[in-house]
Write a protein that binds this DNA or RNA. Structure first.
Length: 257
DNA sequence: ATGACGGTGTGGCACCGA
């Protein structure tokens, strides 16, 4: 089973690249973030023709998340229960995989802009609420993956300039403690289960030749539950889509389990 | 301290992302 996450920075623009990538990689589940379109603009037909079911939680202009799956999706949940939020950032669904039900939680985590800002405060409250949701999700669904654009570089090695960017957004101690708190619930960063190249990143700034100079961050993650972890055989970042014409600034992360 | 690039929506520029 192959599961992937990809922040596409507008599905309206990136749909042809998504279809190409699905055809090339044949992932079973693809979690998308930053759709930037409302549900009624979601390209259900094109994705169905490509062989995928979809659970969608869209939003015009900003945010928006979806789960694509070759197998049907059930028990779809949107956003964080009990946490009032005007922004579409979380969608969860269950797939009945051959070896048992698999719960997938797909998040577009808050950016936070700058420590001390109102948006950073929102990020902290959102992360705290997500943790409580994940505690409940894990209790109900032992076989679980939490994936998405976390907007957190968990360690220094996940940043192209950890010293220059110390305690700036994506790098703050507070954000990293929230990431660790998710791991402490019984989740593992699948990427770090394996030897990986140094300076492996999933996002590069569009500006100043960020990708060409590999000035990036690893902020897109796949966390697997303790019950799913023994099944994981590989995890990698696929840089190929970042080399497309008109790429997203993020590239997909893929896990095999 | 600011802008650099790209997407969206609006209306000829502002806002947001990371």
């Amino acid at each position: 089973m192959k599961i992937a996450t990809w922040n596409v920075n507008s599905l309206g623009v990136r749909l042809p690249q998504v279809l190409d990538w699905l055809a090339a990689t044949a992932v079973d589940i693809l979690c998308l973030q930053e759709l930037k379109l409302h549900d009624d603009k979601f390209p259900l037909d094109a994705l169905r023709d490509a062989g995928y079911h979809a659970a969608v939680f869209g939003q015009k202009t900003y945010n928006g998340v979806a789960i694509l799956s070759r197998l049907p999706l059930r028990d779809v949940a949107k956003n964080i229960p009990g946490f009032e939020d005007a922004q579409s950032r979380v969608i969860a669904a269950t797939v009945d995989a051959p070896d048992g039900p698999l719960r997938v939680v797909n998040g577009y985590f808050v950016n936070g802009q700058e420590p001390g800002s109102e948006k950073f405060d929102y990020k902290m409250r959102w992360l705290h609420a997500l943790r409580e949701q994940m505690r409940a999700e894990l209790a109900a669904h032992p076989r679980l993956a939490l994936v998405g654009d976390f907007n957190i570089a968990p360690e220094d090695r996940d940043s192209f300039d950890p010293d220059g960017l110390r305690e700036t957004i994506h790098h703050t101690t507070e954000e990293r403690l929230h990431f660790q708190a998710l791991l402490d619930l019984g989740l593992t960063d699948a990427f770090r289960m394996f030897d990986q190249p140094e300076k492996s990143f999933s996002w590069w700034d569009y500006r100043m030749l960020g990708f060409q100079k590999n000035r990036g961050l690893r902020i897109d993650h796949i966390l697997v539950s303790d019950a799913l972890r023994p099944r994981v055989t590989a995890c990698h970042i696929d840089r190929a889509p970042r080399k497309n014409k008109q790429p997203s600034d993020h590239t997909p992360v893929v896990v095999e389990c």
